[in-house]
Design a protein around this nucleic acid. Sequence first.
RNA 1: GGAUGGGUGGUCCAGCUUGGUUAAGAUACCUGUCUCACACACAGGUGAUCGAGAGUUCAAAUCUCUCCCCAUCCA
Length: 785
Amino acid sequence: MNENHKIESTSWDPSLELKILDKWREDNVYGFSIIGQNSIPFVIDTPPPYPSGRPWHIGAAAHYAQIDMIARAARMKDYCVFFPIGIDRNGLPVEIYTEKKYKIQMRKTDREKFLDLCKQALDDLESEMIQIMKDMGISGNFDEYYRTDSTEFRSLTQSTFINLWRRDLIYIANRPNNYCYDCGTTLADAEITYQEIPTKLIYMKFNIKETGTIIVASTRPELLFACQAIIVNSEDNRYTELIGKHVILPIFDREVEILAHRTANPDFGSGAVMVCSYGDQNDVQLFRELGLEEIVSLTELGTTTELAKPYANLRISQARSRIIEDLKKDQRIEREENIMHRTPICERSRTPIEILSMQDYYLKQMSYIPKLKKLASKIKFHPEIHRQILNSWLDSVSIDWPISRRRFYGTEIPIWFCNICKTPNLPEAGQYYRPWKEKPPFENCSKCGSKEFTGEDRIFDTWMDSSITPLFITRYLRDQKLYDYLYPTNLRPQAKDIIRTWLYYSMLRCFQQTDQLPWSEAWIMGYGVDEKGEKMSKSKGNVIDPFPIIHRYGADAFRFWSATEGNLGQDFRCSEQRIAISKNFLSKLWNLARFVSSFKIIYDLPRHLDDSDKWILGELSKLVKECELGYNDYNFFIPANAIRDFTWNLFASHYLEMVKWRVYENEHKYGHESAISTINKCLSTILLLLSPICPFITEEIWTKMYSDKSIHLQKMPKSGTEYQDLTKYTKPILEFNSMVWTKKKGTISPETGKPLSLKDPIQIAVPTTLISFAPDLRKMHNLNS
RNA sequence: GGAUGGGUGGUCCAGCUUGGUUAAGAUACCUGUCUCACACACAGGUGAUCGAGAGUUCAAAUCUCUCCCCAUCCA
């Protein structure tokens, strides 16, 4: 017990948090060690945040605060908790950020130099994020935090790729892809935005082979030569007769069939649509769905291919005006209409993208879907409702995963192509390779023996890296002993918007490597939205910076807010005002402790307990039980609210007022000791229960009053059933107290002319049901019945 | 266009799985109070036909159907 246990100040000072942080670091309170460890591991596959720009997202900060609560609660349940911290540093966002920051273009910058600039940008942003996480009291393993762009991480990504290649799970194929001419790269769908751009809709008159004509409207007449079908809606009576008939393409004199398809919108243009390879994403889908044969229409240079015959090797805009000109001469243009067209544009260059057939690497995933579905049903979801996002995604995966990107900042695809026979040659797994700048680690081509190679200059989709975090953190392929102890891990905490990507890809990749799922549980958090309930985004300008907020109100206030703000898995609104309010509870708790600390501290309960004391202990064990339920489900909304409710509305407002007299008067030895020990029991239990949510204030009070050792080395209180029967008096006690207060308020004192003060005497009889609490109730209200 | 989640006092949010006393809590607001931990507090109070409509039932915030609105994801 601490000698100088009295708390002096009248309010919780958040600046104490810094001091506490220092102490935790010095004492290494949260260290993880496998040595001599015979307890059960609890491994959290922490999401490595992506430093994509400033400010960091307040919702993300709240997210990490809650993951930390999971870790802390698990430690108190005696698990050997492994809580790694990582930073995701691969991919497009940092490239965009770097281009903007240094006003350069990736393609026009030396690759090496560009990578260095990206690294610098990442370092700055990363240190800020790490600082916020530390300031929030995150108890992860910061000493050896990992980066997904480290040599160790990237070599693991490459090792798993080499493994997949050797198992014939990788292939190279031509598939239509988004392509930006300005950036010279393929783009993932996620890197595309849409903009309304004015364009001309051309109504063309085509002859029908069987008989008659049809009007087809298109914004892309230059792709006429790549047309493979005309579609109409089967419910559009103008065309029902024509379905199955054939259109003769003018100029090119080729026949294509008129087909029915639900995507043909009768209200747009003429209702008849030209399907070309490829005018837009819809065309891609139609080609696949209708089994049409692709006509390669555009080159990587942004010109038409040879197949465009008279219009070959022209820029797209040139080809368009020439074709329109010729169609006009031929009386094929019915009319032109100016419209606003929702056009896909590149997020970086803001120029329209084209869809090109490009050669890319694919990872086979289709054959794994049935097995993954089966395994997915075994994952425990918190909350259960979010399981269906994964399930519906598993149902809708329809093509293999394109894993190559024509970009710079990412893990390189470790392949060298033979200059003579073009055979791809792969190095041995275990190293980090950069084929675009390095010589291959072998002499001869495995097929023809040639010594000349060209290194692959493409990189992986970033999800190839992030999907193996469970393998990386458990030291897969690097430390068998640790890996055996830690894998499969326990929990994947993550945001719900990346279930289709991070959660799914991790399942796939880890299963391909280990034949089992990487975790047994998934904890899915909603995202922080703004005060109007809309998602925060930089373009909307509604992003809240967590840094100043955490410093203004303190980490514990922020964490308590995050726990009370919304139920498990739901989106939650972020409002500074509400964070400010949560500080009030900390203040209440602090003053409660100040009161308790002003008396002797008796930690163990005596043999004799008064009935009021038994009653509150009964309520206390109910609270312990409820917190246990919440913590077991990683749902902090439940314990945070239950603790606040018990502490404020029961313990402080009613119980404490009832027993105050016994706490002050030590003539009644038994009653005095009973009360003192009970208030200490309640306070210490509250502190323990609250410590995963508010680690700072609980630590400060705990170490001041109860122990020299950190509260975070303590065990979680176990639930029991003591004095449960007495909780039936809770409602009558509250009602009686309220009745007395109301009566005093309604009684005007003859001396002051004001309502009676709470300490003034009044004549009210304690009801017989509450007779065992009568001494306390009489003293509390100064009843002189 | 498809999918998912949500619509409960001024605001935020619990309850809905398993229908049943007066719809909980926080905050805001109003009134009063410095009552030996706390005015970042205490006491009291105002305030919700639970998105709309229909149905099932002795009984619906809760179950069923239809519709409306909001958000997110996918196209």
